[in-house]
Amino acid sequence: MTVSRREFLRASGRGAACVGLGAAGTALALGRGAVAGELVWQIDPGKCVACGNCETHCVLQPSAVKWGHTHAMCGRCAFCFGYYDLRAGSAAHAGVEYQLCPTHAIERSYLGGPYFEYVIDEGACIGCGLCVKGCTSSGNGSLFLQVRHPRRGQRGAADGTCVNCNECAIARSCPSGAFVRVPADDPYPFGRQRGGGA
């Protein structure tokens, strides 16, 4: 059997490519950075400065970032810095025009005494972080931003939850490096540590 020069060169090239691909793939799969499972994006509230990029830079409109609330940390203030604009003065019952949230995604209910409870309407939240900024800089810091991932029965984009882009567009623009990748089986480690859901 004769093999033409061209055929021989092609076969050698193919062999080299196979060995190269296999070696590179194995080296990466056994390397320090290799992860067997899945990773998802999350925000480290300790680094987040609530700059507002989460609302504007997500590839989804509205953003997949929503607020989380550690109720155990919440002072349940009548004048909530995450709920009211400071222009409202200290009026605990200021009108709707003094609310910080541009989409009125914060539901406030009276608890008795000077106390109120604040709960998120996740469907309305656009992840702008105005409430988080107010609460962190002037209040107890019980509000924080979290990337919302699809739950059972949800699809990523269709339900406005994170589609896990290979390069997160918000992470790229995050001024404080607060975006990190966490294992998918524990997608809210920061919220869990603080005891506040997302």
Binding site: H69, T70, R151, R152, G191, G197
Partner: peptide, 10 residues
């Protein structure tokens, strides 16, 4: 106190 859930990623 409102329940806080940490649902797994689907």
């Amino acid at each position: 106190q409102p329940e806080t859930a940490f649902p797994a990623v689907r």
